[in-house]
Design a protein around this nucleic acid. Structure first.
Lengths: 209, 209
DNA sequence: CAAAAGAATGAATCATGATTCATTAAACTT
DNA sequence: AAGTTTAATGAATCATGATTCATTCTTTTG
């Protein structure tokens, strides 16, 4: 017998793979999937282009993995914001705010996840992503209805309106090229976000705060 | 002297040009700008690919023209809906409904105009398009504020939220490939549209109808 | 260390589609 | 009808970028 994968090798391979995914993520965050050419990723990760194909069957597969990783992260953030105690309305407001702030911090990534055209395998991931958000918001709206602080309505459709209002307002206008035209101050008192949140909550509850 | 363009020729050229733009429009309506390859347009219009370059400097220019044509049409439709008498709230509701119905009738075109990534020259047209919508809605909101039927607010931002909520709800979910999964009944009593409109009006006015 | 196996390389190949341009056809003018 | 000018043609060329694969480098094992 002549060769068997050793632990050291396993780790080294994992490290390379990790570097590739990290660089892909960075490329996408910078300029969307359009911007993430295999050659560029390879250069950035300091490997040969062929190496990428040793770790992934195709660019599409690589992208799908990145997409999954990114969306899990985002959805978790929003889920976290929804978790703490409070009435449904408060919690929804918190979640929307988190969603909006995340989008403002990384508008290009947000746009890529929400709206950039992608290959079929990635589109499949996107469906799951949309569903995850819709489920989160829907659940909260439903709880609000039970609690009586939100009037009865089609929860799924409302949830979609929420995502639409926020994402279009924040990432739609400055979608592809023109980044950095929005004041991305880390502090969460961005008046734009406030306006959007108010619109959403009113759309949901039909009452002015 | 040897040659001077005659009326007949002028008309024939105009006809060819028209045929090219028509076919481009159809291609885009079917599958977005992605789908509108020069070769396909040429085949469809029954001209040689080179002929297209006799009428347009580049594909980008052709696209820009199509985009302009399409958006003028859409914006006019919405402006029409905004024109008839009524209080601002009624008129806004009518305009939003028109906007939504148009999007439902041609979801792919709507998506192309709103969200599909396009070349710089086309993106420039899109900015004008967005602005046209924003201006329309904004003006109506402002009138509503004066009339007292809409509370004071940032009219520009609210207007963006309107466009976002509607477009995401209608064309976002079924953006690229999967058309025809929505019940596109011509009758204007689509419950999905009703839900969205209600959400928007509430978001704007803060009152349940 | 030599043999064996896997990993990495990156130039070459393929695929897609826009654009060009030498050639042909058509339209005017006298 | 011959000469001149513009229009149309579509195969060839260019540009971009994904993918392959013969070759080279590393690791493992006896």
């Amino acid at each position: 017998m002549a060769y068997r994968e050793t632990e050291k090798m396993r780790q080294r391979k994992a490290a390379v793979r990790q570097k590739i995914t990290d660089c892909t993520y960075r490329c996408v965050a910078e300029g969307g999937f359009r911007n993430a050419k295999v050659t560029r990723i390879a250069r950035m990760a300091d490997v040969a282009t062929g190496t990428i194909y040793r770790h992934f069957d195709s660019k599409e597969d690589l992208f799908a993995e990145i997409f999954r990783r990114a969306t899990q992260h985002e959805v978790n953030k929003v889920a976290d914001a929804l978790a703490p105690p409070g009435d449904a309305r408060e919690r929804l407001e918190r979640a929307l705010r988190r969603f909006a702030e995340r989008a403002l911090e990384g508008p290009v990534m947000a746009w890529s996840l929400i709206a950039e055209p992608v290959d079929p395998k990635v589109e499949k991931e996107r469906l799951a992503y949309r569903k995850a958000y819709a489920d989160l918001f829907e659940q909260a709206i439903r709880e609000g209805i039970e609690e009586g602080c939100i009037p009865d309505q089609n929860t799924r459709q409302s949830s979609t309106c929420l995502v639409g209002a926020v994402s279009e307002s924040l990432v739609g206008p400055l979608s592809p090229s023109q980044t950095g035209q929005i004041t991305t101050d880390k502090t969460d008192n961005n008046p734009l976000v406030d306006t959007i949140i108010r619109f959403c909550i009113q759309g949901l509850t039909g009452t002015r705060r």
